[in-house]
Design a protein around this nucleic acid. Structure first.
Ligand SMILES: [Mn+2]
Ligand SMILES: [Mn+2]
Ligand SMILES: [Mn+2]
Ligand SMILES: [Mn+2]
Lengths: 218, 218
DNA sequence: TAATAAATTTAGGCTTACCTAAATATAAAT
DNA sequence: ATTTATATTTAGGTAAGCCTAAATTTATTA
């Protein structure tokens, strides 16, 4: 009945299920940093608790209860990230690990007070939407730079938050949420994308350009 | 190697050792809400980790390492309490349980930022001193109302924080930190203490008067 | 001092969340 | 259709942190 493990498993399963339709054992093991055998064990337990459906060899899918829990944890994680940035002067590359721990010791009341103190924010410091208290997640599917075409223009509305190093690099380049940029060239040779921002040309690697999302006004 | 248990044991041992010179098994068990046998187990493990000295039947005493850890946890606990009151509008009777959980997921950096955001506070919302980052605890030994004499006068500087109910009652009576009061009568019959505060007379039970501390200017 | 009571430790068990290695199932390649 | 490779599950174990009940030690009282 450990909170932390259950909650982290459910969050990871949620993510994998969103991306791939199902959460396979090995992907989960990699994401959680545990052995495959451990995952099989745990997934069975979570299935007993009716947080997910488990079909041997086919992976896991969350039940409504599981999804509710996942969204609650995502909400707490993102609220904490926002809170740390807003009230404690954290940078956007420093908040993930802290939130990863704080999310598990957050009461209903604490969640509400953080939400209120922040003025009920809609997105976290990386532009990821914050699920509502009722578990609604507004699915904003922005285009990543690698999916854009030359001369597309817009503001950065979201960046992938899985690498602090990448976030630091963006900061160094002067790129952040709300930065206005334009796609000036797509390099076929290596998949790079070259953008212009305030007159400067900035080349971005394929991985980088998959991690940055912009909103293009029609 | 769980953090939470280790840290809560060490904190409790610290408290018992301060009060009684040693932390006996049964007191610890009562304080932590576990069985006596469990305490014996755990105390041996903590002894192996050199956080305390354990003499069978004689109880436990913290080593310097143990004391350092205890003070670190007390510091984090009290900083969190102060933070919740100052930034999230918690009342003084609502912060203890939250802090009890948050203290275990607090990195060095988070501790520092909370400290800074609060302007390096010296005491928590109950008037308890906050140990410094270096582990210094200024020992302020104020007199409890039950130790005062009739016509003693001063301001409330500390209240015991182990009962939310009691804290709520104080609030209802209009008593808080910095409230100026005077001892108007000591009732021998039942051990009550009657105080005056802003003209009003307020009777306080023996337990209550042992829980309120004032500073009497010479 | 001997008997009794209270506190403490020991012994045997349980659950959770891990691990590793062996067995098995599924998918890919010949 | 086999063989081979990969993914997954099973089996057997471990360490924490807890429990209860029995044994033992220490303290109290007669
Ligand atoms: Mn987490
Ligand atoms: Mn984020
Ligand atoms: Mn605690
Ligand atoms: Mn306090």
């Amino acid at each position: 009945m450990d909170n932390k493990s259950t909650e982290d498993y459910i969050k990871s399963i949620y993510r994998l299920e969103q991306d791939n339709g199902t959460a396979l054992t090995t992907s989960l093991a990699r994401l959680l940093g545990v052995g495959a055998g451990s995952v099989t064990d745990m997934v069975k337990k979570l299935s007993d608790k009716r947080l997910l459906h488990y079909e041997p060899y086919q992976g896991a899918k969350l039940t409504p209860d599981g999804k509710r829990l996942a969204l609650k944890m995502v909400r707490r994680h993102r609220l904490w990230e926002m809170f740390l940035v807003t009230f404690l002067n954290y940078k956007w590359d420093e908040v993930h690990d802290e939130a990863e721990r704080l999310e598990h010791v957050t009461s209903e009341g604490l969640e509400q007070r953080i939400d209120k103190a922040l003025g009920y924010p809609k997105v976290d410091p990386h532009g990821d939407p914050i699920p509502t208290a009722e578990g609604e997640l507004i699915d904003v599917s922005y285009k990543s730079l690698s999916d854009c075409n030359v001369s597309d223009e817009g503001v950065i509305v979201r960046v992938s938050d899985d690498s602090p190093e990448m976030l630091q690099l963006l900061t160094k380049l002067g790129l952040g949420l709300n930065t206005k940029i334009r796609i000036s060239q797509k390099v076929k040779y290596d998949g790079s994308v070259i953008i212009t921002m305030g007159g400067r040309e900035i080349p971005l690697s394929p991985v980088m350009s998959k991690s940055i999302f912009i909103n293009i006004p029609e």
